[in-house]
Design a protein around this nucleic acid. Structure first.
Lengths: 337, 337
DNA sequence: TAAAGTTTCGAAACCGTTTCCGTAAATAAA
DNA sequence: TTTATTTACGGAAACGGTTTCGAAACTTTA
């Protein structure tokens, strides 16, 4: 009930508040025996320093924000896992904010974070985010940001991603090697970093193999499951049905499976499917799904490590660099010839 | 850079800090025109109140902690989704802590939270948690806790769960109806709330149908994927192989699929499988998996709503009640006769 | 017109830590 | 012994809000 604070400890020990404070943080100018006495009483009374008082005084909260589009998604939940692991190790706390792929929400969240509640931000932008005013506003308040996966290329900071271009290129090439000639591309809008890079990799592979890019084969995530299914079915039941699908996001691979089930299209006989995905059941699907698997946990861990390293210095400056971690292509039945 | 605070606003307006503070919070005893002036300037200068100063003074942080065993898990990520949704709506912030099913971690987290960093806690205990001292310590600091899914029955507070006993009963009965006579049970340790209740439901169904409970058919999650696979394979390759598997947690259903693949056991011909699961690809598995699906999102939402309702009152008291939300059994191919 | 009430605002205390500054005692140097 | 230096600690300001108390200025009532 009556929460124990420095004043209580000080009174009980006949010391000054400042002395107790320094003793607890093992300051060099406090005698060893007083330190011991203070520590002992603090431990006995279960003293826990008030983080708000400390943060107010120090202008440091030992807290970061993680802003992601969604959490019920294998990639993001794994990334958060990685983030939380280093956070716990470094003594940081992590606040979670979901944008639900909604730009307005993303804006109001970043807006709020200018208050100084967090020391830094880890972020994967929503697929509606076209403008970066809100990001710059945060940076101007000296709050460092590290992007992961879905980055803003024209913001000066570190971005941790997979090799999206190369992976998309290889994935598309894999489909071509398996005999596909008409390859559909299901993705997020191309102003989103990953949408753009993966699209470019896909197109490059097609060009390299003298296949033509068919704009009718492209579907963008609408952020609405039913609408997505409708769009995918439209493409798969068009007059010239594709014989391969490159899904740039897991969600649309699932949609493709459902669409094929409904339309009676057989994978991989009629159409082959490959997807960026972190499904841990990919090998158990019917048919098992060929995936380009991103090291989601490592990406989160890496991004967090970079952020914390900068936060632990006095001048929290973050390099403008791109950190790329390779994804791995795991061939399975969905692309078997 | 130079963060704008109340003092700046006050000086610029020629008002007292207290006046500005009250104007911004629309206090009744400030004139309308001064209010407007204050609001205007605050908006113009992009003023964001310092949450730490406010929390320090008010002893309220508008922040809750969510403590879960893991996050790369469909149930928990969906639950967190529900939690974050209401939190955002109510203007609360959510701190995430992962225990990784580790009791020591759970202890140190709850220990730390006694500092008053959060106003309340939403929690699903680890499967190592046998003792509840750390929970009581939190309660004695007047920090309300609401449990969800994995609860502590002997703590006086609200617990939000699914109807674990009934669901396990029905799930087991479903296997029996599909012709199973020797049903294995793969679960979490039985001192965990869900482990216990689901086990009882399973046993009750067996008794009701005059089937005997075979302790050799029980496998408990060891928190180690390889070990789990070994245990499951041991049971599935024993002299008297079960013809049905009730997986109390999704993870072990996946393990069962892998084990069957490796051992050449066919589902559902040789063995039928049902599982508590929130896999959104359950219908796409090979074979599609019969699931008992918990309304994870709703559970999170419900638990959060209850917590916030109590926090918004002055005397944060939480009823000692059990809120039960029904799970739904979705029959699929893995239990087809 | 004086007394009473209302409206609108300012001064200052307060929340719990951290930190700057100062000082008395103990030790070292001259 | 006197003077410098170190050691060990106390006092008080500061962080940025919120809240209590009170007091002008203005309005209403008798």
């Amino acid at each position: 009930m009556t929460t124990v604070n420095l004043k209580h400890l000080a009174k009980e020990l006949g010391l000054a508040v400042s002395t107790v404070s320094r003793a607890l943080r093992d300051s060099y100018d406090i005698g060893d025996d007083t330190k011991k006495k203070v520590m002992a009483l603090a431990h006995k009374l279960n003293y826990e320093p008030n983080p708000y008082a400390s943060s107010l005084r120090k202008h440091k909260s030992k807290t970061i924000a993680v802003i992601v589009p969604e959490i019920a998604n294998n990639f993001f939940s794994l990334a958060i896992n990685g983030i939380e692991d280093v956070a716990q190790e470094k003594g940081y706390h992590v606040l979670i904010y979901l944008t639900h792929e909604n730009y307005a929400k993303e804006q109001s969240i970043t807006r709020y974070l200018q208050s100084g509640r967090v020391d830094g931000v880890l972020m994967s932008v929503s697929n509606e985010t076209n403008d970066i005013q809100h990001i710059h506003a945060l940076k101007q308040k000296n709050i460092p940001i590290v992007f992961f996966d879905r980055v803003c290329d024209n913001v000066d900071t570190t971005k941790v991603t997979t090799d999206d271009f190369e992976s998309a290129f290889k994935g598309t090439e894999h489909l071509i090697e398996q005999g596909c000639k008409n390859i559909a591309f299901f993705s997020v809008p191309s102003f989103v970093s990953i949408g753009n890079k993966r699209m470019l990799g896909y197109e490059e592979a097609l060009k390299m193999h003298k296949l033509k890019v068919n704009p009718n084969y492209v579907v963008y995530d609408t952020n609405n499951a039913e609408e997505n299914l409708k769009q995918v079915k439209r493409v798969l039941s068009g007059k010239k049905r594709p014989d391969g699908v490159f899904a740039s996001v897991e969600k649309l691979a699932i949609t493709t499976y459902h669409a094929c089930n409904e339309l009676g299209i057989q994978i991989p006989k009629d159409i082959k499917v490959i997807s960026f995905s972190n499904l841990n059941t990919a090998s158990l699907l019917n048919p098992s799904l060929t995936t380009i698997t991103q090291p989601a946990y490592d990406i989160g861990k890496r991004a967090a490590t970079i952020l914390f390293r900068s936060l632990d210095k006095k001048n929290a400056t973050i390099m403008n660099e791109k950190v790329t971690i390779a994804a791995t292509l795991i061939p399975r039945d969905s692309t078997r010839q």
